[in-house]
């Protein structure tokens, strides 16, 4: 793909200290993500799997939300649809005013580069690139020069507290550090939306807490909208809202409350505070 001509990613992060200054405020009433009657079915051999059935939900900007549910509930499928990695069989996904169904593969790739920051469970860093180059990778799709790309990557790494590890390759970093590099990569383009797939799934408790805290701060300090898929009950203490899914359906009302309660009970004291209001 050619660089996105004319596109600039104004990194609103400060150049020095992490998180100083007031966060940019997002309009509460606006909707960043609008999922309308979305279903996703796919074939597995001769069987048709109903991964999602008629799901509708809205997410406002500046919110940190979690999709939770047991394995096979459809939460990852929903995350893939929101991030433009997959397409629904039925229904419509609108993110930041863009109906993703209107975009072809390469347009969708360009849209992701511009609007979505991705965080994966296994970090998915490029092994042959050092931390700075890994973080700068999405900026290759802009017309920024090398020096500016590096400057922004260093700023993003400073935000996640890894500016002393610029030249380290992934295999010389701990799991927690690798995930922070991945978070820096997700924010370096200043995207509208950050999507995290089980970001604490491969981390120990301490690093998991730190990662969730960092994501929370991204929302608080920079007004980032974060959609996270997780099994981790600790997440309840950090997120604004939880969407529970089960067998491809979005749970609502008393079903959703029961699911939240089950997670709290399973987690013991970890999730006692519950989701933030």
């Amino acid at each position: 793909m050619a660089p996105l001509r004319g596109v600039r990613y104004p990194l609103r992060m400060p150049p020095a200290d992490p998180f100083p200054g007031p966060p940019p405020s997002a309009p509460e009433e606006a909707t960043l993500i609008d999922i309308r009657h979305v279903s996703r079915r796919y074939r597995r051999g001769v069987d048709e799997v109903h991964a999602l059935e008629d799901v509708s939900l809205r997410i406002s900007p500046g919110r940190f939300v979690a999709f939770m549910g047991p394995s096979g509930s459809g939460k990852s499928t929903l995350m893939n649809l929101v991030s433009g990695l997959d397409r629904p069989s039925e229904g419509e996904v609108v993110v930041a005013g863009q109906s993703l169904g209107d975009l072809d593969e390469d347009e969708l790739a360009a849209w992701r580069a511009r609007h979505v920051g991705l965080i994966f469970q296994f970090f998915n860093l490029i092994p042959v690139l050092d931390a700075r180059d890994n973080v700068a990778l999405p900026l290759l799709l802009t017309e920024l020069g090398k020096a500016e790309r590096h400057r922004r990557a260093e700023t993003a790494l400073r935000v996640v507290g890894l500016d002393h590890r610029l030249d380290h390759r992934p295999n010389t970093l701990s799991g927690g550090e690798q995930q922070r590099v991945a978070i820096a990569r997700a924010i370096v383009t200043d995207p509208d939306l950050i999507v995290a797939d089980e970001p604490t799934g491969d981390l120990d408790a301490k690093n998991a807490e730190a990662t969730l805290g960092l994501l929370r701060e991204l929302t608080d300090a920079f007004g980032k909208t974060i959609v996270m898929v997780t099994h981790d009950p600790r997440a309840l203490r950090f997120v604004d809202e939880v969407f529970h899914l089960d067998k491809g359906l979005l749970l609502e009302g008393s079903d959703a409350e029961r699911a939240s309660e089950a997670i709290r009970l399973a987690a013991g004291g970890h999730a006692s505070a519950g989701a933030r209001p």
Binding site: M1, S83, L85, E105, D106, A109, A110, W111, R112, A113, R114, L118, F120, N124, I126, L137, P138, L140, L141, R185
Partner: peptide, 11 residues
Amino acid sequence: GTLRALGFSRG
């Protein structure tokens, strides 16, 4: 997959 997810095109 990561590169494609980040927005790099097929080309």
